[in-house]
Every structure is written in structure tokens, then in C-alpha cells.
Amino acid sequence: MYEAGVVEATDFPADSRYHGIPTRSFTAPDGRQFPYLARRFAPPPEVFATIGWRQLAEGERLDQIAAETIGNPEAFWLICDANRALWPEDLAAAGTELRLTLPAGVPAPEEE
């Protein structure tokens, strides 16, 4: 469907880390076109509002924490972005302190 142009290659759900990332196209020497996603740059952690901290327990995974704190296990990448990690494995060691945040651009609630 990508090749036929029926489905836009950037048709990712709004909660996907790839939502809004443009597609590019590579033309091989034989003329074949290969669509691909442009590189995604993680936002700087400063754009995230901290809502808490959590120490990773032995055997715990980011998808479990994302399910518990965000409500979506597939949103583990938000935890990665907020902690400057490219890969979930970078935050997998027991005892790692995780910064839990709101999504980029969502301000923290005002304190009364």
C-alpha cells in the first residue's frame, strides 16, 4: 500500500514516536524507489515536565512502568526520551533512577 500511494508512509498513531516524522525516498541505481522515515531526533529532556522519580526494581521493564504510569506499555519511549536514553536497555539495570515526565510540551500543573 505504501508503494501504491494508498497509505501515507507517516501514518503512525498520534502516540507513536514516529508520528509526524516525514518520509524520504531513496532512488537505487536501477531506478527503484525505497521510502524510509527521516531521522527522528529526541527532544531535549528540558522540554519535559517532571512528575516524579522511580528507581527500577530487579526484573522490572520500561514497558511495565509505562503501563503503570502512563497507561500505555508501548509508550516506554517517552521514558527513554525523558532520561536521554536511545535504547530501553540503557535504562534496564536494577537501581537505575528514572525521571517520570509528562509528554514533551505538556506543562506541569501549577502549584497552588
Rank of each mutant, 00 (worst) to 15 (best):
T69H: 15
D63G: 06
A49C: 09
L62D: 01
L37R: 09
A67F: 09
E74Y: 12
L78Y: 05
E58K: 11
A49L: 03
P29T: 07
P109C: 04
A92L: 13
P13N: 12
S25K: 13
A49D: 11
L62T: 01
T27F: 12
L100K: 01
M1Q: 08
A49Q: 02
E46V: 09
D30K: 10
Y36R: 00
V6F: 09
G52Y: 07
N72D: 10
F76Q: 03
A85G: 01
G71L: 04
D90K: 14
E60V: 11
P88M: 01
Q64L: 14
F76L: 12
D11L: 09
P44S: 14
N83Q: 04
I79V: 05
A104C: 07
A67P: 03
T69Y: 13
Q55G: 11
A104G: 01
V6S: 12
L100H: 12
E111K: 15
L37F: 05
P45H: 12
P109L: 05
T10Q: 15
Y36F: 13
L37S: 07
G52S: 03
A49P: 06
F76A: 15
I65G: 02
Q55E: 15
R32I: 13
G105N: 04
I21S: 00
L62P: 01
G59C: 11
E3N: 06
P45I: 06
L86Q: 13
E110S: 09
R24P: 00
A28H: 04
L98W: 00
Q33C: 02
A82Y: 02
F12S: 08
T50I: 15
T23D: 07
W77Q: 02
P73C: 06
R99S: 14
F48T: 08
A57N: 10
L78N: 05
A67D: 11
A104V: 05
T69N: 13
Q64C: 08
Y36Q: 06
P103Y: 00
P107V: 04
I51R: 05
P109D: 07
G20W: 06
T23P: 02
T50M: 08
T69I: 15
R61F: 14
R99G: 07
R54C: 01
R40P: 02
E74N: 14
A67I: 10
P73M: 04
Q64M: 13
R32K: 14
V7K: 14
V7E: 08
A85N: 00
G59V: 03
D63H: 10
E111M: 15
A57C: 07
R84V: 04
T27Q: 12
E112N: 03
R84A: 05
L78G: 06
S16V: 06
P44T: 15
H19K: 15
D90G: 06
A14S: 13
R99D: 05
E68C: 01
R54V: 10
G31K: 02
A94M: 05
P73V: 10
E112Q: 03
T101C: 11
V106H: 03
S25W: 09
T23N: 13
I21M: 07
D90Q: 11
P88L: 10
E97Y: 05
E68I: 03
R32Q: 11
A93H: 08
E3Y: 10
Q64S: 12
N72E: 09
G71H: 08
D63M: 12
E111Q: 11
D30F: 13
L37P: 00
Y18G: 03
R39I: 08
D81W: 04
R32N: 07
A42R: 07
P43N: 04
M1T: 06
V6H: 12
E89Y: 10
